[in-house]
């Protein structure tokens, strides 16, 4: 329940969700459930230079394509999306959305059998 509660408090903030297929989607956290399924709003797919193998395009929207296949600008066909919790690898959190003391307390409480 710890992380379910944590993510509920994070609703409204911008996060980057990295999936197990190497896609990274940035957006405003809209909601979360007990499986840690996530709904994002105003989404865009993250282009990370450091990650050449990271897919820089959204599967949903392909607005313009350069013929050498290198640069795929993604459009706005998908603005909101539902991400199944089971395919999440990481969520990058905004520093202002992390209260370290609160997390420590919640973790100790959970470890004691919460």
């Amino acid at each position: 329940m710890l992380f379910f509660s944590y993510f509920k408090d994070l609703v409204g903030r911008e996060v980057t969700v990295e999936l197990k297929n190497d896609l990274a989607i940035r957006g405003i956290l809209h909601s979360v459930d007990q499986y840690l399924n996530i709904k994002l709003e105003n989404t865009r797919v993250v282009d990370q230079d450091k990650y050449p193998h990271m897919i820089t395009i959204s599967i949903f929207d392909w607005e313009s394509v350069d013929t050498s296949f290198k640069i795929l600008q993604f459009g706005l066909s998908v603005r909101n999306c539902f991400i199944r919790g089971s395919v999440v690898r990481y969520v990058q959190l905004p520093p202002e959305g992390v209260d370290i003391e609160l997390l420590h307390d919640a973790t100790r409480r959970e470890a004691r059998g919460g």
Partner: peptide
């Protein structure tokens, strides 16, 4: 990551580093 060189078939091991301020990590991985 391990890539195979097209000509020599040698394994090229590459490491990519990055830093992230705060990261939630899903336990199943």
């Amino acid at each position: 990551t391990v890539e195979i060189d097209d000509e020599t078939y040698e394994e090229i091991v590459r490491t990519t580093k990055r830093t992230v301020p705060f990261l939630f990590v899903r336990g199943d991985g």
